[in-house]
Design a protein around this nucleic acid. Sequence first.
DNA 1: TTGAAAGCGCTAACAG
DNA 2: CTGTTAGCGCTTTCAA
Lengths: 344, 344
Amino acid sequence: MDEEVRNTRLAKNLKVGTLDEVAAHAGLSRMTVSRVLRGHGSFSADAKRRVMEAVETVGYVPNRLAGALASARSTQVAVIIPTIGNIVFTEVMSGINSVLVEAGLQGVLAVTEYDDERERALVEGVLSWRPAGIIIAGLEHGNNTRRLLKRAGVPVVELMDVDGEAIDMCVGLSHSEAGRVMAAHFVARGFRRIGFIACDINRDLRAGKRLRGFEEVLAQHGLEIAIRHELPLPTSVPGGAAALVHVLSQCPDLDAVYFSNDDLAIGAVLHCLSSGIAMPERVAIAGFNGLVIGQLLPRRLTTVRSPRFPMGQQAARCIVQRLAGIEAPKRFDTGFEFLTGQTT
Amino acid sequence: MDEEVRNTRLAKNLKVGTLDEVAAHAGLSRMTVSRVLRGHGSFSADAKRRVMEAVETVGYVPNRLAGALASARSTQVAVIIPTIGNIVFTEVMSGINSVLVEAGLQGVLAVTEYDDERERALVEGVLSWRPAGIIIAGLEHGNNTRRLLKRAGVPVVELMDVDGEAIDMCVGLSHSEAGRVMAAHFVARGFRRIGFIACDINRDLRAGKRLRGFEEVLAQHGLEIAIRHELPLPTSVPGGAAALVHVLSQCPDLDAVYFSNDDLAIGAVLHCLSSGIAMPERVAIAGFNGLVIGQLLPRRLTTVRSPRFPMGQQAARCIVQRLAGIEAPKRFDTGFEFLTGQTT
DNA sequence: TTGAAAGCGCTAACAG
DNA sequence: CTGTTAGCGCTTTCAA
């Protein structure tokens, strides 16, 4: 964080007035104005009228830096996710905001780009704004990050996943179970030569958990993954197409490919459609997430749908409840839905 | 903003120490600690070592509320966009962040959901955190919003569009020109019975500008739109499919449909592929945005690509330059690229 | 119902 | 190189 920019001195430019200026215009004390503006404590109707008038003429915009500092209260809830390039996380964010707004809170987004060190720095950065709560994707964090989150002293919800130990609360689904369910489907379909394609499972840890669940069930049936191919993050539709081409050239007799997410799988399906590769006859394809577009393809994608919007809502609800002094679940499993498409 | 939640009193829970505590542990004054931590001013190597040690043992996390209040400086740049449900805006946001991070600044996102009143409230809310700069989508805002933005006293960049008068600076492309270019293409292809499908052009004003440019050129060739159909926001892929079915049932002899964006157009293309409707023989389809997936469909979508990532970068650069005291362009036209696909 | 005093945690400006 | 003094703009607490 090299301070290359000498930030503007806001006080000099900002023409929004202070509480004292409003008070002077209204002929009241600073405190009465404060009470009127927050609707807290008691004041006369006349005081209110004069304050409102003064606010208008002064063009007052409250300074929450000062307010939050003085009251040690905040309305900001930090949301830390790996990327906004993936619609999955933006849907989660929408769910979070829908609940937060109702409660008079606001979500503030920060993006790690799947980088551990960046995550730690962001958690610290976010903490320095003294948020009212924290929602963070994933159950795995560096040790320093975990320690920071523990001493944050505010409600913390870990999101997307429930396979592991939560710092405070967690809301999500079991990714290993999602992998198992897909493997069972592959076995039932009679696929034997199976490929796996993912984006950097050492960073996208939930994709790794799906893979392990998937392999576990395959193993129970005496099967194993014939070829595994990894792409660099970020995940992309064209990447899935290219990866399919690659694994098919390596293993021409592949029956099926399990993609770690729908973006990749959709790329593969589009490639097959364009190239006349029959699904599932020549090769079967499955993904994870249940994106809408996967269900609109000429051949519907087999996948597992994660309840992203409700998941975000539940996470926000946990925060709101805690702030209201109501206890919230330590662990909330949202479950998922298997979607049998036409590609397997 | 009804304060239903009695927010936690952070001071009571937060175990992060204060500058004074660090100073006590280090056996130094508060100011020396402050200087070391900010790398500002001068201090001995010994002082630095002692401070670092004390920070570690106290578990200190700076309080930026206090810091920003005292110094009247902020590192936050507010970014106000209509929605995060549309990948277009998240790509813009990525471009913004890529530049901001380099400069030691951080983008803070707020979402209007295409609502004017919400936009005004957000601008006020954002201003109350005293950001170092503001990036906001669009050139049209309510009057109150414009006034607020003008008195903000910080650099303001209006993004996505250059057809209009900027409050301070603007970065984007000409949507009316994009519409004109597409109309010229339609005319050149010989389409005469033309439909238009959009999402609520009274809220998505840039879609409205594209429509006007489009109609303008059609009129020059003695043509007009045969059928116009609007969907409610938010834009969606399935919506485009449904809308195409609708207009084709109303006007079976349509030659071509101009969709206000790629999401809708992609839905239409997928529907045609699934239903065996030949493009462009039976009906031609075009969109706007140049989404990657549109170029991966079995028939590439004709569209106009908006340079979203670079647009975001440029907007952030304008802010950074202004903060550094360097003058930045009042109006920056990023241009766009016409993509001739196989659907027209 | 209103006001005065004190202080949230930090930094600017100055003095040593 | 280090410390002191005086706030930033607001809210809490207590008194009137």
